[in-house]
Computed example of a mutant assay.
Amino acid sequence: MTGDVASTSVESPPALDPTKTRSHGSFGRYVAIRFLLMVPTVLILVTLVFFLIRLTGDPITAALGGRLPADQLAERIAEAGYDRPVLVQYFEYLAQIFTFDFGTTITDNRPVAEVLLTYGGATAELVFYSLIVAFILGIPLGMVAAALRDRWPDAILRVSAILFYATPVFFSGLVAKLVFSVWLGIFPVSGRASVRTEIALTREGGTGIYLIDAIASGNPAYVQDVLMHAVLPAMTLGLLTAGIFLRLVRTNVIGTYNMPYVDAARSRGVSEFRLVRKHAYRPALIPIITVIGLQIALLLGGAVLTETTFEWQGLGFQLAKYLSARDFVAVQGIVAMIAIIVALTNFVVDIIAAFIDPRVRY
């Protein structure tokens, strides 16, 4: 009987690996949720900017009031549609943003999209340089502080990190210009390149990112000139984020010292610096990846003061110019684009962090 049952029993199909299915599904679900959350974030930021600007009145009156006769001013307001209800203007503006139409500037009658394309490359270049400075300084110094924790080098580095973050960007920029440009004469005072280099790069066309254009030109003198002009602005803005990276790396590297595999390596006589470099370094990078999106927002905010201090012709410089002219159409468009860039950056960083560390998905 038993033999008959055994002979007629059907072999069960192989079981699926639940961890693989769950991991695959959770990652896709995580990406979808993060993307859906990005949309209301941008919408809230754009809405806040729109209604805060409307508290000052219509943009035409804010920019041209007192400089045009009353009848011409009323005609400009009607042409722009600012005499309609605010909600009508708001929903029309949202529809324009979806087509990347951010309006037309009032002071120089340029499409805001053209301003974004013309000067966006300069700001992206400055942010890239600043991130390089932050990584080069913040991560190694954070590892040194962790290896020498609770000693005098650690105390000096922690205080330096606070100073890097707390010092206003415009103040550190002015001090850097005074010391390295006026007194020592090492670096240029302002601008993205010398006049000769700038004329050559703009005449040849290109991406608007001077380093790429200089490399494409094949002239080493242009590359050197562009890099020399970038040192002080990049250091000024990069130190702001370097202080955050330094403290973040130090905290996370010290946290890994209590892990069993680190204790095992220490028991074998591995030095503290080798423990940091070989065993505690990589886990400490995951938190840095997760905060890069927030640092992009910080760098874009600091770029306004940095570009103004060094006359770096980017979006921050243009934003300050349009603010002083009370051209709120241009201000609204630039701020909306910055909000979109920050939201997209956070989305990409979240996906990278979830791919590297599966714990982020849950």
Rank of each mutant, 00 (worst) to 15 (best):
A146Q: 01
D108V: 09
N252V: 08
F50T: 13
A265Y: 04
Q224K: 00
F164A: 09
Q332V: 09
Q313S: 14
T306S: 14
L64T: 07
L157K: 03
I199R: 01
T2W: 09
E79L: 15
A32M: 15
F98Y: 14
A320V: 08
V46C: 11
A297D: 04
D71V: 13
L299I: 11
G25P: 10
V127C: 03
G25F: 14
Q224S: 08
G66W: 11
A242N: 08
L148W: 13
T123L: 05
G121P: 03
V179A: 08
A284S: 13
A166N: 02
G81D: 09
G103I: 12
Y30N: 10
P153N: 03
E198Y: 11
I341W: 07
Q318T: 04
L157Y: 03
F27T: 07
L298Y: 07
A145H: 06
G121R: 00
E198K: 01
V195H: 01
M143G: 13
V270A: 08
T47Q: 05
R151I: 12
F98K: 03
V195S: 13
P283A: 04
T118W: 00
L52T: 14
T251I: 12
I296H: 02
A134H: 04
V5M: 12
T123P: 02
S271R: 05
I209H: 00
N219F: 03
V144Y: 13
L55S: 07
S26M: 15
G238V: 08
A95E: 15
R76T: 05
P69Q: 10
T197K: 00
P85S: 02
Y281P: 00
